[in-house]
């Protein structure tokens, strides 16, 4: 296996959600912390895609921000290409090798800038490339836009075309790692297919490494080599995507897969799992999934399950067994 490009080891990120000091003092409350990301470890080998999937509030977007250094971890270590992330970000030669694609192509492009300036911004910021117009034209071609589109403004483009512009901008400084936070969630399904195909093509062409964040299991299935399932800030199952989809071991992964509406199940009745994701400010003791888990035993209510390796898959569940289906 090639050397990982990105490695997270025991990464935790807490947010202070306490009330203002005076109010807290008057009400005799203690400081409150929200553990958005709790002891997360994974590695992404260069040239592959790792996806994180989970419901709102599970911490997947926080991991995305941690991975490119937009947030600093409260504990744990992040390494980029064998180097601590902070050191890598201090070196422009390394920092340009990571970039991010955001969910909303309407909010992430400056409406007052022409497309060519938007795409050229990373080039100017890093002072790279002698022939900026030539590079912009090349990037526009790579994402399937015409050279003349560079003269236009973002509002002249549809959502899918705007996401192509975001991708061109992200690729401008020739990065190795792209962190994609729900890149197709704002798009229609036929446009989503275009963008997903484009992202796969670019990965093959440029040898990109993706950290892909999505709530959509089908999209994740299509994009991932490896898959991590997150619940309340923790990765509960991590492994090769094919294996996780074929034989989900964690009850939460099974719940998620079961809940996806399926074209094959026309008119079929289902018994949805009840309950909702609890608040991360005050997570349940033991395994945080136990209140919703159909298999929970007494041990799950008190003891937090450690991550165990079962074959190629890592699972944080007391009950998961190797080879279970």
């Amino acid at each position: 296996m090639p050397e990982p490009l990105l490695r997270l080891a025991g990464v935790t990120r807490r947010f202070d959600v306490s009330r203002p000091t005076l109010q807290r003092w008057l009400a005799r409350e203690r400081r409150q912390f929200l553990r958005a990301v709790d002891d997360v470890s994974f590695a992404i080998p260069a040239g592959t895609t790792l996806s994180l999937v989970g419901e709102s509030g599970c911490g997947k977007s926080t991991v995305a921000r941690l991975a490119v250094g937009l947030l600093a971890p409260s504990a744990g270590e992040i390494q980029f290409d064998g180097q601590p992330l902070a050191a890598a970000r201090a070196d422009p030669g390394q920092r340009r090798r990571m970039n991010m694609i955001f969910q909303d192509p309407y909010a992430s492009l400056n409406p007052r800038w022409r497309v060519r300036d938007i795409i050229a911004e990373p080039l100017r910021a890093f002072g790279i490339g002698a022939d900026v117009p030539g590079r912009v034209a090349e990037l526009l071609g790579q994402v399937g836009l015409a050279g003349a589109d560079g003269e236009r403004f973002p509002h002249e483009f549809s959502g899918g075309q705007r996401q192509r512009i975001s991708i061109a901008r992200a690729l401008a400084a020739a990065p190795s790692l792209l962190v994609c936070d729900e890149p197709t969630s704002a798009l229609d399904v036929s446009v989503q297919a275009q963008i997903l195909n484009l992202m796969r093509d670019l990965q093959q062409l440029l040898g990109l490494t993706y950290l892909f964040i999505s709530h959509n299991l089908a999209v994740v299935r299509h994009m991932s080599d490896r898959l991590g399932v997150m619940y309340l800030g923790r990765v509960v199952e991590l492994g090769p995507a094919d294996e996780v989809f074929a034989a989900p071991r964690h009850p939460y992964t099974r719940l998620l897969l079961e809940a996806v509406p399926d074209l094959e199940r026309v008119g079929s009745a289902r018994t949805p799992v009840g309950g909702e994701v609890p608040s991360p400010i005050d997570p349940p003791p033991g395994c945080s999934f136990h209140p919703r888990c159909p298999l929970a035993v007494d041990r799950c209510r008190v003891e937090q399950p450690p991550v165990r390796k079962l074959g190629a898959v890592e699972v944080a569940c007391h009950l998961a067994e190797a080879g279970a289906d």
Partner: peptide, 24 residues
Amino acid sequence: EGLMASIPPLEHRLERLAQIEGAM
């Protein structure tokens, strides 16, 4: 037909998704 084909399937991983060119 195009709409159905552009939905990524859960059962297996495709090399490419069928895509409808252009936009509405």
